[in-house]
Write a protein that binds this DNA or RNA. Structure first.
Lengths: 195, 195, 195, 195
DNA sequence: CTCTAATCGAGACGGTACGTCGCGTCTTACG
DNA sequence: CGTAAGACGCGACGTACCGTCTCGATTAGAG
């Protein structure tokens, strides 16, 4: 609506080494900046400068900084959702919970940026959007709880809990986190409950 | 840090009828715009135009649109937190829950804008910030659950649940909402639990 | 063309003592400010503040600061022109010259402001305009010199010379000034000349 | 004193063709506007619009319209002063006078704008400033006439005379102008004189 | 190993919104 | 009941980024 054609190449299948190098530099610089301030206080010129690339070059790879964030976020979120889905299954939620927490712990730096940095709000929305999409076909587990609400609460609860955990200087061990996670977020939604 | 002197008057004790009129017009126009798009896509010129006031006049009342939103949000949130606090008390959470839901239901239009419009993210942060502040002195209710986490989960859960509820075309009755609220958000945090 | 009607009263025949007081205060404050900076760097609020009157009150007396300057300038210039005219007469230019210089010397503060302060350019134009008007009916004194040119040169020369004189810390005596005035400005225009 | 950092480049050595094109367009549009109204009634937006460039682009080349005028004026004035200086020399003032008048005549359009348009006052000041600077080292030609006064009178007289000449619909021939110039402005200052 | 095309840097440019300032009009409240 | 105080609409200011668009310079990888 806003823009005309952009002269951006399609680098998706590029084999040129420079392309990969440039993309990596952008990503790295961008995540570093996101650690420091919210998305809308970061200028593209800043990213380009931090990545030691030309301003114009940024646009050859990403149409906007928002789009860049979405690209990064989407791929990371997919991993997490794949790990998180079994959590809601009937089998062994405690084990799946632990697996998910460990995954985040292993990529602490990245997730810390995503969840506690300037991208948090964007990420939350994307996270919930993708979760709802994945869970769209599910049937309700409880007659008193619309499935959609369940997904929203679990997803947002997960994000908040992980964000809190990543912010701590002396984070509690993963096992304890998994217990909190299970008791406050998972069980209330999937378990049978007595009023 | 950014600005030099601003020529803004202190209107807090203003008695001039025009002042109230102008402030009301700004607020109304702003909330209408927030219904349609996120905060950062709203320009001050748009607000001024919609409120039928001069562009400059906006700054005579609010230093920025962010500040305006915070002013509005803070006062509304305070009301809600006052109603919400007893919910966590030991006595009768179900009753307090119902009271809070009814309050939101009675101000549906306003809260709908705040929670589901372009201000949602700002409001969430402010909400959690204020909740943490209010709850700072509390002692932990559970040895396995840090008090801070409890507050965060209850607050964000509340926001998500209310936001979902306000988005529905055919919203479920308040009583049912209160049940969900109690089972998924309150009880898991304040009650004793069996693993 | 720009403005609608102004609610300005006509105070020209006012007898109210306050009116005179106010006008005097404006005039005084204005001239003081003109000593310090050019006209367009002086704001009306500044004048009003310096004159200890309300901002709006200024407009009850003068439509704009430019107009105010013109009012002041015009009356002063008229005095000077009346003294200066005989200078060009055939009788005794040296004597008239001396008279004029003495007049300026006696009102040094005022003329210093008018000629060397921020009003200089406006004053020059007004001065030349009035001079040309007064001298419109004159007949040329020399066949080789259009009357208009003569008036312009004498007028602008007078202004420049007086401005220079008023700027000096140790001004030369009036008598010497009159000599310069006569030799460089008056004589070349009115006297018969040998090429 | 006024401004913070300006993002203006140094175009003095620019080779980009667009730069020259833009600068020329600005200059042309600016001079055209100066023909019509005084400097302070011209807005930068007007200049930009008339030059068919973006508003912001103006500032990439000139910090303000006043500065732009000074740049233009300074370069033109330098030419004229170089021609005018020999006029005051002892040799052949009549010839130098003629040369100078011819130069102005050949650039009638430009000088007409500078001297009779909205820039006249600014130009006068700059002219006198530069003249005094150039003539700073001179020694007085007459014991009764301070050198500074001589420079001021010659310079301002020159400007007034040229301005008058350029304003005429049927201007007198250059030769007659040179005679007036010599008799009324040059001779009275440099020649020995009998009281 | 060359050379040709892809990629990049540098930055000029037209825009849009910002927040500030001063103007001149108009309204209100006070004395 | 008139006047000061000041709220207001207006429009220009100068700044900051935006995203588009040339330009050459460099460099990879195909011939």
């Amino acid at each position: 609506m806003k823009h005309g054609k952009i002269y951006r190449s399609d680098y998706s299948t590029a084999t040129d080494a420079r392309v990969h190098q440039t993309r990596a530099a952008i990503r790295k610089a961008f995540l570093q900046l996101l650690d420091q301030k919210p998305l809308d206080q970061i200028t593209i010129r800043e990213i380009a400068s931090a990545a030691s690339i030309g301003y114009t070059t940024f646009f050859r790879h990403h149409p906007s900084k928002e789009e860049l964030l979405n690209e990064i976020a989407a791929s990371e979120i997919k991993h997490l959702i794949e790990l998180a889905m079994p959590v809601l299954g009937p089998i062994d939620s405690r084990e799946a919970t632990l697996t998910m927490c460990r995954y985040v712990a292993e990529h602490r730096a990245l997730w810390s940026t995503l969840l506690t940095g300037g991208a948090a709000n964007v990420l939350r929305e994307e996270f919930i959007r993708l979760s709802l999409q994945v869970a769209a076909s599910w049937e309700s587990t409880n007659e008193w709880l619309p499935a959609e609400v369940g997904v929203i609460l679990v997803t947002s609860g997960t994000i908040e809990l992980l964000a809190w955990w990543l912010k701590q200087k002396d984070p509690i061990p993963v096992e304890k986190l998994a217990i909190i996670f299970d008791r406050t977020i998972i069980s209330p939604v999937i378990n049978q409950q007595r009023s």
